[in-house]
């Protein structure tokens, strides 16, 4: 393991992380609750949507729907994401390049 920072900061970091964890867990438990959510209590009851492949197998992962949404409703973010990746590529290439004299 890496050498940890000075003792003072060490303690503060630990305390901070633990406190954050306590807060988040407390928030989750108090809002969402620990019982499984019964479908009838949901705001909008949505039936399970299977996809049936050609060989008859059922697919509950919903990957076909993901693809469909990706190219219809969310196509603009998709294209923009491509541009972002291009920009990141060019940027990191430039910054990591060895400088010639």
């Amino acid at each position: 393991m890496e050498q940890l920072p000075s003792k003072g900061w060490n303690i503060i970091n630990l305390v901070t992380a633990l406190m954050l964890m306590a807060v988040l867990v407390f928030a989750i438990v108090s809002v969402v609750g620990l019982e499984p959510l019964v479908p009838s209590t949901l705001p909008e009851s949505v039936p399970i949507d299977y996809t049936v492949w050609e060989d008859g197998s059922k697919d509950a992962s919903g990957i076909e729907h993901v693809g469909g949404l990706l190219f219809t409703k969310y196509v603009i973010p998709f294209e923009v994401l491509a541009l972002i990746l291009l920009a990141a590529l060019l940027g990191s290439l430039y910054m990591a390049k060895k400088e010639d004299e």
Partner: peptide
């Protein structure tokens, strides 16, 4: 990193205080 610590500490404290005022 110390600044990050401070930020997280601040957020945590605010959440703590708010939770005890019953916002959650």
């Amino acid at each position: 990193q110390n600044y990050a610590t401070a930020t997280v500490l601040g957020v945590g404290l605010i959440a703590l205080i708010l939770s005890f005022r019953g916002v959650f």
